[in-house]
Design a protein around this nucleic acid. Structure first.
Length: 824
DNA sequence: CCGATACGCATTTTT
DNA sequence: TGCGTATCGG
């Protein structure tokens, strides 16, 4: 497919795409087509003759990687599959698995998630006899994580006077010792935590120059998305790979750096042109997303920050409405106001629920909005909460899997040795741990030869341990050859998990059962996909190495985007998204900006960037709101409107009329006579321009008197929307996932579902018509959707077709296994 | 080894 | 307040 770059890109985008004379930094303002530049640039490189596998494109999320992959495959077809594209963690874990032996790990090393590493730290703190009041696992974890992000090994940590001083001051002088032990324990367990994936990559490249050279040569061009979110380790690895050839392009927006609490270092992007001398700077400043008002408002806000790369983001879209600010008495009223507005826009302006989003600073705020929406029968989807793989029942199963692939995995071992209950209690586990620690071996090795390691337990216990050992040994043996799905099912049965869960008929038990079913389907689907792509065999190890870096079941989720629900999420998780209407709520001091940021300049600037991200998510309408009182930590707290409301130029705001506050600041505690319970907020008439707002926010004007509520006539004009009550599905906490309350996937007509229930797969189920597939035909695949056949190879059993799908890009499918129907 | 009760704590979280 | 963890009793 020929790409008309000139036609499809603006001047700056084009320049950034075409530039290939050295390193480049693309500063991409919000909504300025950053992903567009990256994808066109990769397409261009391929056109110029770069081999797909010589291009490395790094992102932070799987979602971003998948998105880019599918966009690129629309240009270049199946070549896109060979481009090295993925998250830092997934790309480098792939490399680490290939090179594991060089750094003392095995190919099958485990990846510890945050919970695993926290649990390990907890055990270590306990073993060391440290005061658990002073040494909170999460704090220690944070220190260690920071150290790793800065490429600091235990020895360097222990030898750094500054760090030791800080730790001493924090009453945690022994963190260096914990770190060292933690490091060793991970190695014994053949496990890496998330930070290790980066740190060990760095070490691998650093200690094995030939390996570094190998990959440096292979990746002739490296691109990085969201560079403002990189930490020092990531920055350093990119440098290791590119410092020789300097063919690197990083894209990001310093104004959207909101992850410093995770180690992101804004200096990486601010100082990029210093590190890469002569790097060319491109600025994408035209915003294609939002109205001029929204863009200008956001500009005026971010201008209040001091550290940033200068840029002027502009929009050529319509002017749009002023940003309205809603003042509410209470959190509950804030919820009602927003819910009413949503209903209003839905009814009066036909704005779908699915294009409206409520963004808040903290997850705790979601509940009020959820309830307000439910009262109005407005469907919503709440993001946040624990992800699928963090659920206990899933983690338990995954732990068995992990153990079957890597029996030295200490956390998995401890998790399942007595689940389901088999009479091996804490005392016994303690003895095993002790023996393992004493002899410097893994728990599993103690189990293999308990006598050699002086394990002192009674006969009964010993035989129980033998039982567990044999159970796992059986799995280990099978893991090498058996298919992941078959073995997975076997493990769930034989371990006793199946029985345990089946015996629980409580609602929670049923939910667990469903999750397990879904997980099993997921494994099945994973194997089926791999098979269709031509991989004969999928082992548990294959499954684990992909799945341990997924937070959701992204890989197998059918598009559920189509259902019309209001989105509720934190501002952090909204980064990268856009909505026609955005409500940024809870704009109060000590909430947004967070109370944690109050005494730090840098953190306050980050909060402001966070607010900037929130506002720039809006395409057409942006609403801001705050509540004067809020129920928090068991009592009602009063608060002041956020300083950020004053940071936006008043020209772009539509403030509530006078009379919000009796006085500026907090109403008298406990005696809110005069306005308690009354809806007092009055709004201006419909948005019609900027210039009415006054420079002093009304709540700061002294002596203003309240006009009584006129807001009902506008906000509660809710006519018909109570009728569809039944459409709304109540969400209960345990149904909440990172992605929503899930609904059963819809099975497209004419195709059999492969894996709703694992047992539903019969030999004949959905057998595809395979005889007559020709280039140019359009098919609908069960998972990948609609696509066009671009290539057919082989015949009969081995017939393999290349299909370019509209949404997921190009895939090679073995017709023997693929499930689809021909539609044109 | 599980359940009940008490205590203490409380952002954001791509991987 | 409300959850997750810690500890004790059966």
């Amino acid at each position: 497919m020929a790409i008309n770059y000139k036609e499809e890109l603006n001047e700056e985008q084009l320049a950034a795409v075409l530039y290939n004379e050295g390193p480049s930094l693309v500063i991409a303002g919000a909504g300025s087509g950053k992903t567009r530049v990256l994808t066109y640039k990769i397409a261009r490189l391929l056109e110029e003759g770069y081999q797909p596998w010589s291009i490395l494109a790094l992102t932070f999320t799987n979602k971003a990687a998948n998105e880019m992959k599918s966009r690129i495959s629309r240009f270049v077809g199946e070549q896109a599959r060979q481009v090295w594209m993925g998250t830092f963690h997934s790309v480098f874990s792939r490399i680490l698995r290939m090179e594991a032996e060089r750094i003392g790990f095995s190919h099958n090393f485990t990846i510890y998630d945050a919970a695993d590493s926290k649990s390990l730290l907890k055990s270590i703190i306990k073993e060391m006899g440290l005061d658990e009041k002073n040494y909170k696992p999460s704090t220690v974890q944070c220190h260690i994580s920071n150290a790793k992000n800065r490429l600091m090994l235990p020895s360097a940590y222990a030898n750094s006077p500054e760090i030791r001083k800080t730790d001493d001051a924090a009453k945690m002088p022994e963190v260096h010792a914990i770190y060292r032990r933690y490091w060793e324990r991970c190695r014994k367990a053949d496990a890496m935590d998330f930070d290790d994936l980066l740190l060990y990559t760095y070490l691998l490249f650093n200690e094995h120059p030939e390996v570094c050279e190998k990959y440096g040569n292979q990746f002739r061009y490296v691109l990085v998305d969201e560079y403002q979110d990189t930490n020092f380790a990531q920055h350093s690895i990119v440098w290791q790979l590119t410092n020789r050839h300097q063919r690197v392009c990083v894209v990001g927006d310093d104004a959207q750096s909101i992850y410093s609490f995770r180690g992101a270092n804004i200096d990486n992007i601010l100082k990029f042109t210093e590190q890469y001398e002569g790097a060319k700077l491109f600025k994408l400043q035209q915003n294609y997303r939002s109205t001029r008002t929204i863009v200008n408002a956001a500009n005026s806000l971010i201008a209040k920050n001091s550290e940033q790369i200068r840029k002027e983001v502009f929009s050529e879209k319509e002017k749009g409405d002023a940003i309205r600010v809603y003042a509410a008495y209470s959190d509950v009223e804030e919820g009602e106001i927003v819910a009413n507005k949503i209903a209003d826009l839905h009814r009066m302006k036909q704005i779908p629920y699915g294009r409206q989003a409520i963004l808040y600073r903290t997850n705790a705020q979601s509940r009020i909005f959820e309830e307000a929406l439910r009262k109005r029968s407005i469907p919503c989807r709440i993001y946040g909460g624990i992800s699928f793989y963090q659920r206990k029942e899933i983690k338990d199963i995954v732990s068995y899997f992990r153990l079957s692939v890597n029996p030295n995995d200490e956390e998995a071992f401890k998790r399942v040795i007595n689940y389901p209950a088999r009479g091996i209690g804490n005392t016994t586990i303690g003895k095993i741990s002790e023996a393992a620690g004493r002899d410097g071996v893994s728990l599993w090795e103690v189990l293999l030869s308990p006598l050699d390691h002086g394990l002192n337990v009674n006969k009964g216990t010993l035989s129980k341990l033998q039982g567990f050992r044999e159970l796992i040994s059986g799995f280990i043996e099978k893991a090498e050859t058996m298919n992941a799905y078959d073995l997975g099912v076997e493990i769930i049965r034989q371990s006793g998990i199946m029985n345990d869960v089946k015996s629980d008929n409580s609602p929670e038990g049923m939910s667990r059962q469903e999750n397990i079913d879904e997980f099993v389907s997921g494994i099945h689907e994973f194997c089926a996909t791999r098979q269709e792509e031509g991989n004969e065999h999928t082992t548990l190890s294959d499954f684990l190495s992909e799945v341990s870096l997924l937070s959701e079941m992204e890989s197998l989720k059918g598009g559920e985007e189509d259902d019309d629900k209001v989105t509720l999420m934190t501002v952090h998780s909204a980064k990268g998204l856009e909505f026609q209407v955005v409500y940024v709520v809870g704009l109060e001091e000590n909430l947004f900006p967070s109370s944690m940021a109050q005494d730090s300049f840098r953190q306050m600037e980050e909060e402001r960037r966070l607010f900037y991200v929130a506002v720039t998510r809006a395409e057409e309408h942006c609403f801001l709101s705050f509540a004067r009182s809020r129920f928090r930590y068991g009592k009602t707290e009063f608060s002041n409107p956020s300083r950020f409301l004053k940071d936006i130029d008043a020209r772009f705001l539509n403030m509530p009329d006078a009379g919000i506050a009796v006085n500026s600041g907090n109403p008298p505690m406990g005696s809110n006579h005069g306005y308690a319970g009354k809806p007092f907020v009055s709004w201006r008439n419909e948005d019609d321009g900027y210039n009415r707002a006054e420079s002093t926010p009304p709540w700061e004007r002294r002596g203003a008197t309240g006009r009584n509520s006129t807001f009902r006539d506008e906000e509660y004009a809710d006519g018909g929307y109570r009728s569809n009550y039944n459409d709304y599905r109540r969400s209960t906490p345990y149904q909440r996932t990172q992605n929503e309350q899930r609904t059963r996937p819809v099975i497209p007509a004419g195709m059999k579902r492969v894996s709703t229930t694992p047992t539903s797969r019969t030999p004949s189920a959905g057998a595809p018509v395979q005889a007559s597939l020709r280039v140019g035909q359009v098919i609908e695949h069960e998972r990948f959707g609609i696509g066009e056949v671009t290539k057919v190879e082989g015949s009969g059993e081995n017939c393999k077709a290349t299909i370019t799908f509209r949404n997921v890009g190009s895939k090679q499918l073995l017709l023997k296994f693929a499930r689809f129907k021909v539609i044109g």
